[in-house]
Write a protein that binds this DNA or RNA. Structure first.
Lengths: 104, 104
DNA sequence: TTGACCGGTAGGAAATCTCCTACCTATTGT
DNA sequence: ACAATAGGTAGGAGATTTCCTACCGGTCAA
């Protein structure tokens, strides 16, 4: 659980998740093409994501296809949900204030 | 934005947010009571949260009351939303599989 | 005014993160 | 069998995080 938040803390890893979401499962080299970074570093980021349960790998020949595994993100969404009413309340307050302003 | 994810990566800071959400605005010392950690460390965590826009401080006498500022969490929820359909899909798949199983 | 209290800052130690190069294994195609 | 390709691992450098103790300024109460 804590690992999921830690995994999301890094912009490269968030971008990896976005790529996998938008373009589906991909081998490491194709993912690496999108980054100004050496492949071993990408491998490490993928390992962090895998340990957090956010991706799964499937060996195919000499490639390993990585694909998105979004379940842990649901835990993040669940963690987030008790706060939702707060920002809704704030937005409601803002709307009320705006409603009070005279037209211009 | 990146700061918000980084701020959430630490369990102590997530717990601080929870305390502020459940018990409302509080001075530093009262927050520190909940942690096995010296006060200056808590001050640093509060600074990270403040820089991420997740809390605001209000000086009252010699105290500084911290309170939750949940707007940046909305950005996290927005970041999360494109993934929502994925875990819904996975759950739907799971349900389909379970439906296929014979009763026992 | 002076002591006690609240809480931030300075500076440092230890751990962790994030990148690198070098190297290794496994698989594929010739 | 051999060269080329895919990708993980080892080990290390430098940056960052996370804690600490020591200290500082501001506020309150006697």
């Amino acid at each position: 659980m804590s690992d999921v938040f830690a995994a999301l803390a890094n912009p490269t890893r968030r971008e990896l998740l976005r790529l996998l979401r938008e373009t589906g499962e991909q081998p490491v080299q194709r993912l690496a093409d999108h980054f100004d970074m050496r492949r071993p570093s990408l491998s490490e980021h993928l390992k962090v994501l895998k340990d957090a349960g956010l991706v799964v790998e499937q060996p195919v020949g000499r490639q390993r296809l990585y694909s998105l595994c979004p379940e842990p993100l649901r835990e993040v969404a669940d963690w987030l949900s008790p706060y939702e009413r707060f920002w809704r309340a704030r937005l409601a307050d803002l709307r009320d204030v705006l409603d009070e302003l005279p037209d211009e």
